[in-house]
């Protein structure tokens, strides 16, 4: 009798172990397998190296562009015609988004306030909402828009790519900070209109906070615009 009683207890505890095994297996299966810490360390080292390289290259690019500015101003000192040309070039740069711009505007922060760390990301399911927001801002007279430091120009894309959102070919994830130059009141009311984009986003679990800023700096487009196929019609 005593032997059987002991076995019943083992059986009950085996039930608990079975439940634990299944729970653990299902959770790890949902994660897509565990990354071993060795591999994670390797990736971390690689990431740090690339980050370092990236900062160095950015610095180099800045140095080179300031050298170009120097040459331009030197040439402009000598000649009025060149000075006029330079002004045209600068204007063209402003219109094409290749200079930092300053002015009145709004700053919008989009994020997801998770109650717990549940791994849910509303931006992965509704990435088009970002596009709609850009569209609304343009319709409300925005003069320059950047998202997380990526200036939006005519060739910019906002697109879901795996577990990130690609903007100007660079991976971004939440929070998304929009910097918009334009009439702050108009922009704000365009977003906050009833059943407008802010309401739609909130309905999709995205938190929207809008701030009016008097002096806002919108970063320039960092990449090189290169047309391979398009050519201007006619000659100069």
């Amino acid at each position: 009798m005593k032997k059987i009683k002991g076995r019943v207890e083992i059986a009950i505890i085996c039930v608990i172990i079975g439940i634990m095994i299944v729970l653990q297996m299902q959770t790890i299966g949902n994660l897509g397998g565990l990354v071993s810490s060795q591999r994670a360390d390797d990736l971390l080292v690689e990431l740090n190296q690339l980050k370092k390289e990236n900062t160095e290259l950015t610095k180099k690019a800045n140095d080179l562009s300031s050298a170009v500015d120097d040459f331009e101003s030197q040439a402009a000192d000598n000649n009025r015609y060149i000075e006029k040309l330079l002004q045209d070039v600068n204007n063209a740069k402003i219109y094409s988004g290749q200079t930092d711009l300053q002015g009145e505007g709004i700053e919008i922060t989009l994020d997801y306030d998770s109650v717990e760390n549940d791994g849910f990301d509303p931006f992965l399911y509704n990435s088009e909402l970002l596009l709609i927001m850009v569209n609304e801002l343009n319709a409300a007279g925005a003069e320059a828009i950047s998202i997380n430091g990526e200036r939006l120009i005519s060739v910019s894309e906002i697109r879901l790519a795996g577990s990130h959102i690609n903007i100007n070919g660079t991976k971004h994830s939440r929070p998304f900070v929009f910097k918009v130059i334009g009439d702050a009141k108009t922009l704000k009311s365009a977003l906050l209109i009833r059943a407008g984009i802010a309401d739609i986003m909130r309905a999709n679990y995205i938190s929207v906070s809008i701030e009016e800023v008097e002096e806002l700096t919108v970063e320039k487009y960092e990449k090189v615009i290169n047309y391979r196929y398009a050519k201007p019609v006619g000659g100069e």
Binding site: I10, A11, I13, C14, V15, G18, I19, V22, L23
Partner: peptide, 16 residues
């Protein structure tokens, strides 16, 4: 009886 318990636990884990 231990194996039966384990099987029951696995089953419960999938069902619950």
């Amino acid at each position: 009886i231990a194996l039966i318990g384990l099987a029951l636990g696995v089953f419960l884990g999938f069902v619950l």
